[in-house]
């Protein structure tokens, strides 16, 4: 009994030792595709601003926008699409004008060694090749649809996957010969997936806007500026993003 009591007291002691709420903590809601680059930027920001803690919530941009509009404690919102940013500025949760900080384009993803000898978008119409695309309901699928329409190619997909990760699983296992995903996803997938640029990609460029929330502390604006800085640009370029 005594020992239990001591343990409880110990726990109570721990809880009072936690940092007081006056420490500047900022919470960044960011699109899932920004996970690696923003985590890196967050660490660098913390190092440059001693005492500041940056917490991330990564997810699909539409889900994040809904969470913010329902009162989730966000200080910065970085969206993978202007449409989702607009959902938040419409409710007044963000009053500052969002800034485009990166662009993402589609790339042809093929398994290592390119067994299907895929070179351009026209190959997606070949019935003997196994092709994976994102379903139209998810952003990468909508972008792919736009690109195919602009190029006049009727794609012959074997599967319409539920998200980018599922598409890349099939490419890295060699189950499909080609897929259309974002450049940053190809970069993140590692050596088993090769990316190929194609001319028509410029027809579906995705803008990434960022903005601090209206009621966020001053550090939120600092973080946004850090993302927009030279250093921020360098980290994003490394991940495969294009400059705005």
């Amino acid at each position: 009994m005594k020992r239990v009591l001591a343990f409880v007291l110990l726990l109570a002691g721990c809880s009072t030792a936690q940092p007081s709420p006056s420490t500047p903590n900022i919470t960044v809601f960011a699109a899932a595709s920004l996970t690696e680059s923003f985590q890196k930027l967050g660490k660098e920001f913390e190092a440059a601003h001693p005492g500041t803690k940056v917490t991330f919530n990564f997810g699909g941009s539409s889900a994040l926008a809904q969470q913010i509009n329902q009162g989730a404690p966000a200080d910065v919102f970085a969206s993978a699409a202007p449409a989702n940013m607009k959902q938040v500025t419409d409710t007044g949760a963000i009053t500052a004008a969002p800034t485009t900080f990166a662009k993402n384009t589609l790339q042809i993803a093929v398994p290592q060694g390119n067994p299907g000898k895929v070179t351009d978008l026209a190959d997606f119409a070949k019935a003997d090749l196994k092709i994976a695309l994102c379903a139209e309901q998810v952003p990468c699928g909508a972008a792919a649809k736009k690109v195919f329409a602009a190029a006049g190619v009727t794609a012959a997909p074997d599967t319409l996957e539920q998200d980018v990760k599922a598409v890349l699983t099939k490419v890295s296992l060699g189950e499909v010969d080609a897929a259309l995903v974002y450049r940053t996803d190809v970069r993140a997938a590692g050596a088993k997936v090769e990316g190929k640029d194609f001319a028509e990609a410029s027809g579906a460029v995705n803008d990434y806007p960022i903005a601090p929330l209206a009621k966020a502390p001053a550090e939120a604006k600092d973080f946004v500026n850090f993302v927009l800085s030279e250093r921020g640009r360098a980290v994003l370029t490394e991940a495969g993003f294009a400059a705005p």
Partner: peptide, 19 residues
């Protein structure tokens, strides 16, 4: 995978409609 008429069963259709 997911392709209408070939492999899109109801649970897959539900999941994608949810998006």
């Amino acid at each position: 995978g997911n392709f209408p008429g070939r492999t899109t069963t109801m649970p897959l259709a539900v999941y994608l409609a949810l998006e």
